[in-house]
Amino acid sequence: MRDLTPILLLAAALGTPAAFAQTARPLSEIAIYPEREASAQAVALNESRIAAEIAARIVALPIEVGQTIARGAVLAQLDCRDHELSLARARAAHDAARSRQELSEQQLRRARELGAKGYFSREALDARETEFEVVRADGAQAQAQLATAERAVTKCMVHAPFRAIVRQRIASVGEFATPGVPLAALADAERVEVAAQVQPADRGSLAQAAEVRFTGSAGPRKLRLIRISPAVDPQARTVEVRLAFTGDPAPPGSAGRIAWRDPRAHLPAETLVRRDGRLGVFVEDAGVARFRPLPQAQEGRPVLAELPAETRVFVSGHLALQDGQRIATASR
């Protein structure tokens, strides 16, 4: 493309100022605040595969894929007969141990009374005390076994740890559940965040944005910034951002985009000119046009205005300007 700068200068010198009148306006009047966006997805903070804690046959699995269940809802019911029998044995053993402890305590108390009167030897009293300590330890062991059996019975019902959406029904009625083998996969229906991949250059504007929105298949929703990861993905060259819904969350897995308005002033793309291979703008400085290079500027795109708000920027006639040229501006 031909360089039109000499032609423009010649036209201005030949008395055609109306066609190329220079106009400078304060940055505060011409600044724009571009909207940014990035791809995003609603993700559940808890994606859990719930397993049984005891070994037993599955007798009921009252959940279906896609169902939303409350916290504490029954996911699976296991055959508890063996564990109930174990609980009955543990209770009987506990009652027997408690009776032995009561008897041993009575015998020790009587031995101490007789010993105080000189009717019971020191060696015999020591034996009674040792016997009592052994019986008391047996009672503590029986109490622990009873608590273990009671806890095993409570595990015959597998409950949802949070309000959730059933992702997958892994087990089936009649199968034998073993500890650690998943019965169902759940996604947290309440603790949902938005994960977005943002260009590193947009981190500052997002952190300062007054409002961030998530737009997906479930409609627009307002967000609140939680954190911006300092790590850059080596493949995508983006940073991960996490945001929280301020109202009802979108369903986990919903894909969409986040959008926000950059609160920092930007110069319109049409104010940019190229001089000596560099992009920048012309500003008015005491009646003289001064070229201000903008290293971050790109052709056809607004650029961050790292200039004072009162700076007067040329918005017309600037294509023919040269650095240091004295001009008479037409202000608006």
Rank of each mutant, 00 (worst) to 15 (best):
I32G: 04
P34S: 05
E35N: 09
R36G: 10
R36M: 12
E37P: 04
E37Y: 15
A38S: 10
A38Y: 08
S39G: 14
A40L: 03
Q41T: 15
N46A: 12
N46K: 12
E47W: 00
S48Q: 04
S48L: 07
R49A: 13
I50T: 02
A52K: 06
E53D: 12
E53F: 07
I54G: 10
A55S: 15
R57T: 14
I58Q: 07
V59I: 15
P62W: 03
P62H: 05
I63Q: 06
I63L: 07
E64Y: 06
G66F: 13
Q67A: 14
Q67P: 08
T68Y: 11
T68I: 12
I69N: 10
I69F: 12
A70F: 01
A70L: 02
R71I: 03
R71C: 01
G72Y: 06
G72E: 04
A73P: 08
A73W: 13
V74K: 14
L75E: 10
A76Q: 05
Q77N: 11
Q77F: 04
D79K: 02
C80F: 01
D82R: 11
H83F: 02
E84C: 08
L85D: 12
R89D: 04
A90Y: 00
A93V: 09
H94P: 09
D95T: 10
A97D: 07
R98S: 14
R98F: 09
R98M: 13
R100P: 02
L103S: 12
S104C: 02
S104E: 06
E105P: 00
E105L: 07
Q106V: 08
Q107G: 00
R109V: 02
R110S: 00
R110W: 00
A111K: 01
R112F: 01
L114G: 14
L114T: 14
G115D: 09
A116F: 03
K117R: 15
F120S: 11
F120A: 12
S121H: 13
S121E: 13
R122T: 13
E123Q: 09
A124G: 08
A124V: 02
A124W: 02
R128D: 00
R128K: 05
R128S: 01
E129C: 01
T130C: 07
E131Y: 03
E131L: 08
V135E: 06
R136H: 05
A137C: 03
D138H: 11
D138G: 09
A140T: 06
Q141E: 10
Q141W: 09
Q141I: 11
Q141C: 05
Q143H: 06
Q143R: 11
Q145A: 07
Q145L: 05
L146K: 10
A147T: 08
A147G: 07
T148D: 15
T148K: 14
A149F: 05
A149I: 03
E150C: 10
E150H: 10
R151D: 15
R151T: 13
A152T: 10
A152I: 05
V153E: 03
V158Q: 05
